[in-house]
Design a protein around this nucleic acid. Structure first.
Length: 593
RNA sequence: GCCUUCGUAGCUCAGUUGGAAGAGCGACGCAUUCGUAAUGCGUAGGUCGUCGGUUCGAAUCCGACCGAAGGCUCCA
């Protein structure tokens, strides 16, 4: 017989996170209950809480519809109204196996549980295998909504059956739920794919192929500015830029070890007689080849190679998404060859670059995840225990020296070494992995990289991999959403729109534009046969930082009437004063307006 | 790659039970020459994603393929 476990809690005493998590998990139980009623042959997977709600996975004889979601929600609400207690009980393995006979996923879960640690949870007529964490009764479940239906593999493994997952959102109050839906709506409005089209930045075409973004002139302008910024930063910090082409012999990646680990993610080879070429999916082997082209002394180290390289990765078709997940990407990649003693200083330098860049772009809120090798999976990581210890120790002490907060994540390292990944929060609070710094004790040895040390003997350098913005495409996608398309002046593809009020002001408008261009600004004149109001509206929608209205008064006085895209009206400003203002903004990379 | 949904004009979207392809915005033309978020009138623009099938007849029903979105998985 199941043995009851007392689990009364006073919800008000719990921290909000815990309270929400209990409500969300409990709601998942109601969903499963409702599903079993709707489709009795449903096979149940798992139903955990998530950051915004919960989900439950089911194997079903038919696809779910939107109508089903409505029905399920109504059924769940009914259970809430009944204020049914959630009763936890301990249960023996034979009893559990008996109860979940015909529920293959529950039996699968059961197999992983220790005897004596098997518990179930019952509310009303429904009992689920469950480790606990509920509210006291169904009436304590608050505002929720069933959001979407998605496919998900059992235990997240492609080799397992695919289940249907229902996602729900749950918050403590209706207002918070609405707020969450509002946030989703805001995110949709800021979607970089939508803004990219509206602002004429980039496009995709099935004629060219999946996952290859095509940049229109305005989008290319922004890309170029982003790259220039990193290039300038790299030059001033002792990096040397290199260039290594687009294809590489397959054999090089066999030697480096990449082919073994990433074969699935490379495009199929091009074959020329006996030789296979691959589209370059990463730069490290090319940069190590460059390193090997010359003899190196310890006096030259650290040697920092940087490249803006277009890489090609065969992402599976279902993984592609706008600019954030593409098949052709440009990496602001750098490889630093150094001695073990220099790791800490080089890491600090890389960190300084990353910090500066993230802050310049207005990502003031970011955290660092230290990705370490897992203890169990020997195939995923190169087997060289003492080198891993060395690399992890170096990275950890460098992180500690930096004073930045960081978390450690097991099993997330690259095959050749640990990584420090930078996760930045955008204005909507979403987290994006952007920059990365990695320590590599493995590849330089494999590739035969050596330098002559002070002792006159050959030594293998350590290599740091580092990307400031990661992929330009991805970073741009994130930036578009972060700024909602309203780029700061230094990045804006069009920095000012001159708006002549009537045709007779065109020549003055052209003069104004010419003067600004002379000062190095990107300016357009709206010479359409439209009214001034329409031109202002157009410039506003294009998120152009400054609108310069040019009419009789301005032409007379040699001024422009400046409207900022925030709506602020600066009134008549002399052209030289205006240029001073935007020069200042450009030089400081100001985040205003 | 897999699951679900979707694909109609440059964009956003209507299009009833299978019976003559529509609107708004944008583009273009003409008129208007205007003071801080949409001037008026007109014109052009579609092999209804592609291919095949069912049918007297397909945007509509069926199949395959291509592409997109949301997930799962992965990310040097």
């Amino acid at each position: 017989m199941p043995e009851p476990i007392e689990s009364q809690v006073d919800l008000a005493d719990l921290p909000q996170e815990e309270r929400l998590s209990r409500m969300r998990h409990s709601a998942a139980h109601l969903l499963a209950e409702a599903m079993v009623e709707l489709i009795p042959e449903a096979e149940l997977g798992i139903g955990p809480p998530t950051a915004t709600g919960f989900y439950y996975d089911f194997r079903l004889p038919r696809p779910l519809t939107q109508e089903d979601l409505k029905w399920l929600r109504r059924r769940m609400r009914k259970s809430i109204g009944r204020r049914l207690p959630f009763e936890m009980a301990s249960i023996s393995r034979p009893e559990a196996e008996e109860r979940w006979q015909g529920q293959p996923f529950k039996l699968d879960l059961l197999a992983d549980l220790e005897d004596g640690a098997i518990t179930q949870c019952t509310h009303g007529q429904f009992t689920d295998l469950c480790r606990g964490g509920h509210v006291n009764h169904t009436g304590e479940i608050s505002a929720f909504k069933l959001m979407s239906i998605a496919g998900a593999y059992w235990r997240g493994d492609e080799a397992n059956p695919q289940l249907q997952r229902i996602y729900g959102a749950l918050f403590e109050t209706e207002e918070e739920l609405e707020e969450y839906e509002h946030q989703l709506e805001e995110a949709r409005k800021r979607d970089h794919r939508r803004i990219g089209r509206e602002l004429g930045l980039f496009t995709f075409s099935d004629v060219v192929g999946q996952g290859v973004p095509l940049f229109l002139p305005k989008g290319e302008t922004v890309r170029h500015l982003m790259e220039n910024y990193v290039r300038e930063m790299q030059e001033r910090t002792g990096h040397q830029h290199v260039w290594t082409g687009h294809i590489v012999k397959g054999a090089l990646y066999e030697r480096s070890g990449h082919r073994e680990h990433y074969a699935d993610a490379m495009f199929p080879p091009m074959v020329d007689g006996e030789t296979e070429f691959l589209l370059k999916p990463m730069n490290c082997p090319s940069h190590m080849t460059l390193f090997n082209a010359e003899a190196h002394s310890y006096r030259e180290l650290p040697l920092r190679y940087a490249e803006f390289a277009t890489l090609y990765r065969y992402e599976k078709s279902g993984e592609l998404s706008g600019l954030t997940r593409v098949r052709s990407l440009t990496q602001d990649d750098a490889h630093v060859f150094c001695t073990p003693d220099q790791i800490q200083a080089e890491f600090a330098l890389a960190l300084a670059l990353v910090k500066e860049a993230l802050e310049t772009y207005g990502f003031s809120d970011y955290r660092v995840a230290l990705s370490l090798p897992g203890s169990d999976d020997s195939t995923k990581f190169v087997d060289a225990p003492e080198k891993w210890i060395q690399a992890v120790t170096a990275l950890r002490s460098a992180m500690e020296a930096s004073g930045l907060e960081f978390s450690e994540e097991e099993g997330e390292a690259a095959f050749y070494g640990p990584k420090a990944d930078f996760l930045a929060k955008d204005v909507l609070g979403r987290e994006w992995q952007l920059s990365t710094i990695q320590v590599d004790f493995i590849q330089p040895g494999r590739m035969g990289c050596v330098y002559t040390g002070e002792d006159g003997k050959e030594h293998t350098p350590v290599m740091l991999h580092r990307a400031v913005t990661g992929s330009t495409e991805r970073f741009l996608g994130v930036l578009i959403e972060h700024f909602g398309g309203a780029f700061p002046l230094w990045l804006a593809p069009v920095q000012a729109m001159v708006i002549p009020i009537a045709d007779r002001h065109h020549s003055y408008a052209d003069e104004v534009a010419a003067t600004l261009r002379q000062a190095g600004f990107r300016v357009e004149v709206d010479a359409r046969g439209e009214r001034m109001n329409a031109k202002i509206r157009h410039a506003q929608l294009q998120k152009i930082p400054y609108m310069l209205v040019a009419g009789d008064r301005e032409a007379e006085a040699g001024t422009v009437a400046v409207r900022v895209r925030t709506g602020e009206d600066l009134g008549a400003v002399s052209l030289t004063d205006f240029i001073d203002r935007i020069k200042e903004e450009r030089e400081t990379k100001s985040l205003l307006p």
